[in-house]
Design a binder for these strands. Structure first.
Length: 428
DNA sequence: ACAACAACTGTACTTCACCG
DNA sequence: CGGTGAAGTACAGTTGTTGT
């Protein structure tokens, strides 16, 4: 469950590895290469504690022609090939097999029968949100237990303030709902503490969010364990320095929604037709409040996968932004590209091609694969076509991009993320 | 001193099922 | 049909820390 990058995993003794590779190649040239076991299930890279040594099995050129640089290249290639083999196991984790909140819990039970909340969803709304976030987490970090089954529970680090905003209730209510769900074993929650460095390098204990253990299989009693509580989920000092706080996410979302509403009102006053009008089902009824909530939900999905990693300048459906092309400035990570993909279904058809172009370029740039811009545009168009056929193409591509970003950050040996993305999309 | 940050506490308020 | 009280929610204030 832990998402922590293994300490020192990036360090490789290259001299020793070259020796190993050299030996392997020599053995190979003498026809003594040992047969390797195939398709063994392996944990995902971010949680893997197994050293990756001694797994060279193929060399494409004779050993006596291989220079040190080429050796390194071969090693890299082999590691990536091995990684691809490992990820195949992960790709096969069918996310659609995950249980819904309704299958894990009798949601009707939590509908308030009396009082102010009578007739509303009550604590069930929190259960559904946590279930959705858990599924998003598993899409980005798919793994199986040793018995080949899905994990019985998922541990998420979240901001209760953002959860409350998304649900449209107060943080008090979220806590109250939490205790109801905890009583039935659907979740277990606790504040999470981190050590923040003081001025003299002194460690200070501070709350940096709330941990939720969430039931993922029927009958499981969710429980936080010692290792969950003691895991470092975010670097609070760095997040604060960069402005990546729940407080900012909420405030900015409201601010942006208000600005957007003001801009639309201004355009309407000038007699300009609303560019969004008439293309989707009564979309004009979305309030600034609803827009802000939607943005915070997206931020929370992001937070669930990488705690504290909110997008400070999320690309939103801002007509002005698209007209000026300023949108590209905001696309600096895979997540920045992943989330706006959903805009394809709401953007006006005359702007769709340019949006695909912007996102395709950004993808090529972020993946350091600029010459393949057309390939990425094609990728996005294909996803869009699948979406039109009712196959969740955009959602699938979004999930793959989020996964890749997670892998890129925690899997330091990954050299060619573009190839991995292409592979996974083919395999999916 | 005050803002930022995230969670917790206490209390007042609103809403609605229920009962006579 | 209207009074009552339980249930659920909102809100202000608190805690404890860093940083300006």
């Amino acid at each position: 469950m832990s998402s922590k990058a293994q300490v020192g995993r990036g360090k490789i003794d290259y001299a020793a590895r070259f020796l190993e590779i050299g030996k392997a190649i020599l053995q190979r040239s003498h026809g003594q290469a040992a047969a390797k076991d195939e398709g063994e299930p392996v944990s995902p890279p971010q949680t893997s504690a197994q050293p990756n040594g001694g797994e060279v099995e193929q060399a494409t050129s004779p050993a006596w022609l291989v220079t040190a640089e080429e050796l390194e290249a071969i090693e890299r290639e082999e590691e990536e090939r091995q990684a691809l083999r490992n990820t195949r196991v992960k790709v096969r984790v069918d996310v659609e097999r995950l249980y819904t909140a309704a299958e894990l819990l009798d949601l009707k039970k939590y509908r308030p029968k009396r009082g102010r909340g009578a007739g509303t969803e009550g604590a069930g709304a929190l259960a559904r949100l946590l279930n959705e976030l858990s599924c998003a987490y598993l899409q980005a970090r798919p793994y199986l237990c040793k018995n080949g089954k899905l994990p019985p529970q998922v541990v998420l680090h979240l901001s209760n303030e953002m959860v409350a905003e998304v649900l449209g209730v107060s943080d008090n209510t979220v806590r109250e709902w939490g205790t109801q769900l905890a009583a039935d074993g659907f979740l277990d929650s606790r504040p999470h503490y981190t050590t923040s460095k003081g001025r003299d390098g002194e460690n200070m204990t501070m709350v940096d969010g709330t941990l939720y253990a969430v039931r993922m299989t029927p009958g499981q009693t969710a429980r936080l364990r010692y290792r969950d509580l003691h895991h470092e989920y975010r670097d609070l000092d760095a997040d604060r320095a960069a402005g990546r706080t729940a407080y900012n996410a909420i405030r900015n979302a409201h601010q942006r929604a208000e600005n957007r509403a003001a801009w639309k009102a201004e355009q309407a006053a000038l007699g300009n037709a609303d560019p969004d009008a008439g293309k989707n089902s009564s979309g004009s009824s979305i309030t600034p409040e609803g827009e802000a909530r939607e943005e915070i939900l997206n931020q929370l999905r992001r937070w669930a996968v990488m705690p504290g990693d909110i997008d400070i300048n999320p690309v939103i459906d801002d007509p002005e932004l698209f007209q000026t092309g300023a949108v590209a400035e905001h696309l600096n990570t895979l997540l920045d590209v992943a989330h706006p993909l959903s805009l394809l279904s709401v953007v006006h058809h005359t702007k769709r091609a340019s949006l695909v172009g912007i996102l395709g370029s950004a993808l090529a740039r972020v993946l350091n694969d600029r010459h393949s811009r057309a390939f990425y545009c094609r990728l996005i168009w294909d996803a869009w076509e699948q979406e039109l056929m009712g196959m969740d193409g955009l959602q699938a591509l979004t999930a793959q991009l989020i996964r890749l970003e997670v892998d890129r950050r925690e899997w330091k040996e990954l050299r060619n993320p573009a190839a991995l993305l292409a592979y996974r999309l083919r395999a999916a």
